[in-house]
Design a binder for these strands. Structure first.
Lengths: 196, 196
DNA sequence: ACCTAAGCGGAACCCGACTCACCTTATGGA
DNA sequence: TCCATAAGGTGAGTCGGGTTCCGCTTAGGT
């Protein structure tokens, strides 16, 4: 066992408070809230924040890990309920929807997808894996071209999430459709999907 | 005329030296060179740097404006020598090639394309216009689907430029092809291009 | 040659992430 | 119940950047 003693109660409480405070700050627009501010909102000092998270970025990453995990849980359900290509399309749109929950969320997703930042390695791998699952199903069914992997697709989606100009959701949906069509173009059976 | 007197000779020289030093730093990998370092390389003090550029970011933007301008000059030539869809494809690949000249260039292009940073507004507009030109030609020829504009496409390309893991150029080329196919899918005359 | 405004230098400043030496307290065993 | 002790908390201080400011320098016109 790595931890003979579990985390002390106050420590766990503070850690939770920090995550809550950070989430509140990030999701309500203030994506670059200062560590002092986050700590203050959580009712602790900065030292405590740094006891629980190595860097500010690590805190950010942890906040969004849950959101990402939720997103990444979707593929099995989608594949159970839809044809592979439709499942893929829906997942892409789900991604857009997620980046709509707040400026902070969008920027975090962009960092996860469009940068090489080591802090987001876990999240990136998780999302790439989720996409791989969808892509593999599509390829197997002959409705998605081969040679596309999750990591690559993730990159292509990165730019979408940082968008927040007026009407961005339409733009995002449009890009998503382009990518979707691009992946199907030339597949063994590239008819337009019609379920769902 | 906005400036009755032209810029003083030493000032112009220093401005040029700063741009040269910054370009050298950025293109040779050190994309986040410190202002002190850039000023030192240019043989001036930081105060001088700030006389010529409002912020560090403004200097970065100016350095890459020329690269971007070069890129944006390409569409007319491409359209003169190739079918509209092939011209588009080549331009996209040209973009990838440009982001390959250095880590700094790639990151700058990513900032231009994937963020809303006001500093890059000019560059962004210029590139969107260049893409619009290509897209319009493609739509007119019935080889590119309607409803895609330069700004949107720019977004979709953003993530490509930040990539620098081993083998990224293959990934980038692949994404580019996906987008290209996605844009043609469903166009009036969507046969695969064969010129060039 | 001299005047003067444009230009320059660089120490000082600000601001934000991060550290560390010391204090507080939860917790489990006597 | 109470103590010992290590886990946890604190926040002033450090550090590393970008940015500012004001006195000095100098180009360039008369």
């Amino acid at each position: 066992m790595p931890s003979p003693r579990p985390m002390r109660a106050d420590a766990r409480r503070n850690r939770e408070a920090l995550l809550t405070a950070a989430r509140a700050a990030f999701l309500t627009g203030d994506a670059d809230a200062h560590v002092e501010e986050i700590a203050r909102r959580a009712g602790v000092a900065v030292g405590t924040l740094y006891r629980h998270f190595d860097t500010r970025e690590a805190l950010v990453a942890e906040v969004y890990r849950q959101e990402v995990a939720e997103l990444c849980a979707a593929p099995p359900d989608l594949l159970a309920q839809h044809a592979p290509d439709e499942a893929l399309r829906r997942f892409l749109l789900l991604l857009v929807a997620h980046s709509a929950v707040g400026k902070g969320m969008g920027e975090a997703l962009e960092s996860i997808m469009a940068t090489d930042s080591a802090v987001f390695d876990d999240a990136r791998t998780e999302m790439a894996t989720a996409l791989d699952e969808l892509l593999a199903a599509g390829v197997a069914a002959g409705v998605v071209r081969e040679g596309v992997n999750g990591r690559v697709l993730l990159r292509a989606l990165g730019g979408i999430c940082g968008m927040h100009a007026k009407g961005w959701q339409d733009d995002a949906a449009r890009i998503t459709e382009i990518l979707y069509d691009g992946m199907r173009y030339g597949a063994a059976n590239s008819a337009r999907a019609s379920d769902g």
